[in-house]
Nucleic acid binder design. Structure first.
Length: 422
RNA sequence: GGAGAGAUACCCAAGCAGGUUGAAGGGGACGGUUUGCUAAACCGUUAGUAGGAGAAAUCCUAGCGAGGGUUCGAAUCCCUCUCUCUCCGCCA
């Protein structure tokens, strides 16, 4: 959520910032609601003040054995007026709130202005795509060939966009989760968290998935639960409605969860293979930090994610998303993309965002800069470290051999216990 | 799922037959006195927060788990919900 005071005091800046990502801020509606709210607030608070003083007076009169029926009757009308105004204010506030909740974040000044992914900016690339002296297969062909992926039975037991991983495939998935968590907790200073996979509506609202993106989520009955689309949701919400101390910051969390996405609106895209599934595994990195540190933390977050790919010796590139391609809550976002030979291109395997105080304001996550000082919103960041399913795909494709076997990357051998999957 | 108990400020906790109680008391924290230092003792301070008015000083409103209701007036009465604890049942 944007700072309502910023909208009030610097409207041009807000409108211009949002215009960069192609969003038109409804300034007229906003001003009307905002002014109406404040006008009515002044009115009702005066009435409440009157009621408070007079009610105390009533108590005094009655205690002294006097008759207060005249003022009581007068106050009845004041009470009705207050109730009426309170209702009106609630309506206005609901409306204002609904409006503010659907306003995306303002892009940071360092974000290139552009309409879609074609205008994203290449920051750097690492590693050379391998030259094959045979026709490389796609990861799903390899997986089916090795008997480690079963799409048909997945369709039988669940449906489209699911896969059953078997034998070395299942072990590879598990090995990668362990490997990633070990690197992030052991070398990069993150604290491991294993959160619930079902969260409530407040959590989904806190990180920005709701109210706008309800159709992207799986809703669970009974209960008002949502299946997590990413560990970002439970982990960021760990500190919802909290005031952290300055010494606690920065906080680094690394969390593995399965992730669940309805993928509404992506029908027909990536239907083959495990690139786009309703359920996939991911290790997520989440940071809470002081505002002045968030952009430096953001760079380090990207480095931490890339480190996994480097250890696995998988070629990748880092893209800075343009204003039009950024997510709803992000102020700035880098995508890390891994080389996939069968696609003959790089595909997103991690998305690292700085949300500044956008999520913190929604989720009410603050810190006290100094003892006794006024609390301020923290900045939150997160990034995949990494999407496990896509890492499996990348390993199978980049490490495939002509005979259909797959060489295991050095870094994974101690986790998997074999050098070659065949 | 059944039965019961509870949720009050940083923590514990009183108040709950409605009215100078936005909150007794204790602990903690902070400040001070005493002291060679520490401890102890004694004295003092201690809602934080959100919203609003104002140039400012400052003032007002909300707030006793959350949301409604009754009333001139609610921590106290009524309704709904959430969470915690105890016992029973069930279960990995």
């Amino acid at each position: 959520m944007l700072d309502i005071k910023l909208v009030r005091t610097q409207p041009e800046q807000v409108v211009a910032g949002l215009a960069k990502r192609g969003f038109q801020f409804p300034m007229e509606t906003f001003s009307k609601l905002d002014e109406e709210r404040r006008r009515k607030l002044v009115e009702v608070e005066q009435l409440k003040n009157k009621r408070n003083t007079v009610s105390k007076e009533v108590g005094r009169i009655k205690a002294a054995g006097g008759d207060a029926s005249a003022i009581i009757q007068e106050m009845q009308q004041v009470g009705e007026a207050i109730q009426q105004l309170d209702n009106e204010i609630r309506q206005v506030e609901d409306e204002l709130n609904r409006l503010m909740m659907e306003i995306p974040n303002i892009p940071h000044e360092s974000v290139p202005v552009g309409e879609d992914e074609s205008e994203n900016k290449l920051i750097r690339s690492w590693g050379e795509p391998r030259c094959f002296d045979f026709e490389p297969k796609s990861h799903d062909e390899i997986g089916i060939g090795l008997g480690i992926m079963d799409f048909e039975r997945a369709a039988k037991i669940s449906g489209a966009r699911f896969v059953v991983m078997k034998h070395w495939g299942a072990k590879l998935e598990r090995a990668l989760v362990n490997f990633m968590l070990d690197v992030h907790t052991g070398e990069n200073g993150y604290t491991e968290v294993f959160p619930p996979f079902l969260v409530n509506r407040a959590s989904m609202t806190g990180t920005g998935q709701l109210p706008k993106f309800e159709e992207d989520m799986f809703k669970v009955t009974p209960g008002d639960y949502y299946m997590v689309p990413t560990a970002e949701v439970p982990v960021t919400n760990l500190h919802r409605d909290e005031i952290l101390s300055a010494e606690q910051l920065p906080i680094y969390y690394a969390a593995y969860t399965a992730c669940f996405r309805a993928e509404a609106g992506s029908a027909g895209r990536d239907t083959k293979g495990i690139i786009r599934q309703h359920q996939f595994n991911k290790v997520e990195l989440v940071k809470f930090c002081k505002p002045e540190e968030s952009y430096a933390e953001h760079e380090r977050l990207v480095t931490d994610a890339c480190k996994i790919l480097e250890k696995l010796q998988l070629p990748y590139r880092v893209m800075l998303l343009c204003t039009g391609d950024q997510g709803f809550s992000a102020a700035k976002c880098y995508d890390v993309e891994v080389w996939l030979p069968s696609f003959n291109t790089y595909r997103e395997i991690s998305s690292c965002s700085n949300f500044e105080d956008f999520q913190a304001r929604r989720a009410n996550i603050r810190y006290r800069p100094a003892p006794g000082a006024k609390p301020e919103f923290v900045h939150t960041l997160n990034g995949s470290g990494l999407a496990v399913g896509r890492t499996v795909a990348a390993i199978l494709e980049n490490y495939q051999n002509e005979d259909g076997s797959v060489t295991v990357p050095d870094a994974l051998r101690k986790y998997l216990g074999v050098d070659v999957i065949r």
